[in-house]
Design a protein around this nucleic acid. Structure first.
Lengths: 93, 93
DNA sequence: ATTCTATTTAGAGATATTTCTAAATAGTAA
DNA sequence: TTACTATTTAGAAATATCTCTAAATAGAAT
């Protein structure tokens, strides 16, 4: 948890793709893995990095593990970016 | 240039600190370096990564090189984040 | 031109990351 | 119970990243 882990987690293309896949709802580790040309072990490693970063969380059902995006951590990252100004679209009221 | 480099560049704590230092205006490589316990060569390496990522650009004056933030690339990254919704969209689960 | 100052480049070593295979875990289903 | 399925963990190899010292470059000042 914390910015360093979060940014590290976001630095990998595979992990960013996983996040995009999850933006419309939860998926099991297996479903995620099927979309990549990598072993399940590798996907599991990336999921663990995302989880450590707080970007996703898991829930278990039967012998599946479902992963889901944790919006609040995305919001924290957005807040960090907003210090650089740019478009005045994230103004606090 | 491109997301992969940009996110990689953002993944390092030293580089993020450099960006924060630059948010209020340009600084020379030497001024930046003085605030870190690292050699100038190392700072130069980090500046080159940030430059390659498009996050900063340089201008020369006398024998100084000044670095400055490139807001438009920050905006592109923000746009990537906005696909995940969050506060503004107020997506309910 | 020579010297000084600011910064980068080259090369190397240490550390970190990504990926694999093989083995382990945990829950489901018979 | 045993066998099956989904996923993770362990350990190792390949690759990438960060940092240093030493040398190179470029412009300024003398």
């Amino acid at each position: 948890m914390g910015f360093p882990e979060t940014f590290k987690a976001l630095s990998d293309p595979v992990r960013r793709e996983i996040l995009v896949m999850l933006k419309d709802g939860k998926m099991s580790a297996g479903e995620i893995g099927k979309r990549f040309d990598m072993t399940g072990a590798t996907i599991s490693y990336h999921l663990s990095q995302l989880k450590k970063a707080g970007l996703i969380f898991e829930t278990k059902y039967k012998n599946f593990i479902y992963y889901e995006i944790n919006i609040s951590v995305f919001e924290e990252v957005m807040l960090w970016f907003s210090q650089f100004g740019g478009k005045e679209n994230d103004k606090k009221n």
